[in-house]
């Protein structure tokens, strides 16, 4: 515990992972960051949780309307998008893997692939959304609904659809920015990330969380059984 930063670095040379001033040793530092990220993800779960709760309530109340409304969603596009997201999760996990191995070239390649897949996800999402705009399925004064079920209930479905997938897409956009910054810093050998795989691991945790949200959104919106 009393080992000082300098002593540690001297013992292991410049290759050693940097120790930040508030910590005493590396395992403590690494676990602190990981636990901190997980606590943040707990807040994210509760954040999405409020919306999931509203979703469950209204789906239970208006189950028929929910089924009718969901038939207007594009299942192939939704499936494709979820697979894209899963794949990006894999590339992100591999980016962390190569960060741990200090293979900067492959790490950057995997981060790039993740960003690329995330962009593909957003493009597909944009296609889906614009179709909804064209069909007047955007909640609000211009919402048009021709169907057996009441318009307000269908509108509620689309409110939650846009709210939840929108919030998810926002997280994807934030993820792209964060991964981009991480890749840039890695490429520049910035001291914040040099010889330290923890930043990549933390960004990875965030990205996998976004993936998990996607995993739940997909069956809840696209695959509603009769």
């Amino acid at each position: 515990m009393s080992m000082k930063t300098e002593a540690l670095q001297a013992a292991h040379g410049a290759e050693e992972q940097p120790l930040h001033h508030q910590f005493e040793e590396l395992p403590q530092q690494n676990e602190s960051y990981v636990v901190g990220m997980w606590v943040f993800l707990v807040t994210e779960i509760m954040f999405f949780g409020g919306m999931f709760l509203a979703y469950v309530l209204y789906r239970w109340r208006y189950s028929e309307a929910w089924f009718e409304a969901h038939t207007k969603l594009d299942i192939p596009l939704g499936t494709t998008n979820t697979v894209v997201l899963l794949t990006s999760s894999l590339t992100m996990a591999l980016a962390v893997h190569f960060a741990q191995l200090r293979n900067k070239r492959l790490q950057l390649a995997m981060l790039g692939a993740t960003i690329g897949l995330a962009c593909v996800f957003l493009v597909i999402k944009a296609f889906e959304w614009s179709a909804k705009f064209q069909h007047g399925l955007v909640p609000g004064p211009n919402f048009t609904w021709e169907g057996l079920v009441p318009a307000p209930q269908a509108q509620l479905f689309y409110s939650l659809y846009f709210g939840m997938t929108g919030l998810h897409a926002l997280h994807v956009i934030i993820g792209i920015v964060v991964i981009g910054v991480l890749a840039l810093l890695t490429a520049l050998d910035h001291p914040l990330v040099k010889n330290d795989f923890i930043p990549t691991e933390l960004v990875g945790l965030y990205w996998h969380f976004v993936d998990i949200v996607g995993i739940f959104l997909f069956p809840l919106f696209y695959l509603i059984p009769k």
């Binding site: 676990e31 636990v35 994210e44 779960i45 509760m46 949780g49």
Partner: peptide, 16 residues
């Protein structure tokens, strides 16, 4: 990961 990480990883999903 450590017990501590596991604890926090589980807590959020349960509390929801």
């Amino acid at each position: 990961s450590t017990q501590l990480t596991k604890f926090w990883a589980i807590l959020g999903f349960l509390w929801f």
